[in-house]
Design a binder for these strands. Sequence first.
DNA 1: ATTTTGATCTGCT
DNA 2: GCAGATCAAAATG
Length: 197
Amino acid sequence: MPRSRPAASRPLIDFEAPSHEVAPRLIGVTLLVDGVGGRIVETEAYDREEPASHTFGGQTPRNAVMFGPAGHAYVYRSYGIHWCLNFVCREAGHGAGVLIRAIEPTHGLDRMRRRRGLDDPRLLCAGPGRVGQALAIDAGFNGMALDAPPFELVAAAEGHPPLVVDVGPRIGISKAVELPWRFGEKGSRYLSKPFRR
DNA sequence: ATTTTGATCTGCT
DNA sequence: GCAGATCAAAATG
């Protein structure tokens, strides 16, 4: 009698899917970089077909990784200051990804506090630039595979009550504002901004 | 409580 | 030149 296949033998997330489908599935998943991180509580989807995406105008040196295979990290510099982390989605050549916007810190709080120069856990990873600083992301992570160290993704534990995902418009963009491609854990105190309705 | 400003990178016009 | 998938400190009401 074959026993059921261990969950670890199957990829945790199918990144070869549209980013607006991958983004909500990432909510509740634990993201660790060198053992530091926590539960993803906020994401945004971006896609080549849509003008808010870095890939909208085609491939450039900066966004080249997003045109590569899914399941890799796309890291970009935001406003000249911050490093932001994305997960590449869809088939190679498409140009789609999910921006990691906020994390509920659970692992390596001390290291995150040192990197951020802050104590309040609610401010450690509440925003894409803050996530980058807390996890010590920089250009060297661009293009790295997400299924190998230093990255680690851990499935969400089944919660009681079960996890509910809020949906809304993306933040900080001026084009394609109508797309409801921001996702977050309902009621989380670790979001970059609350969800309205 | 809301607005402004500085940080100063990347790609487009 | 300038706008942008941002954040924090400073100025202002």
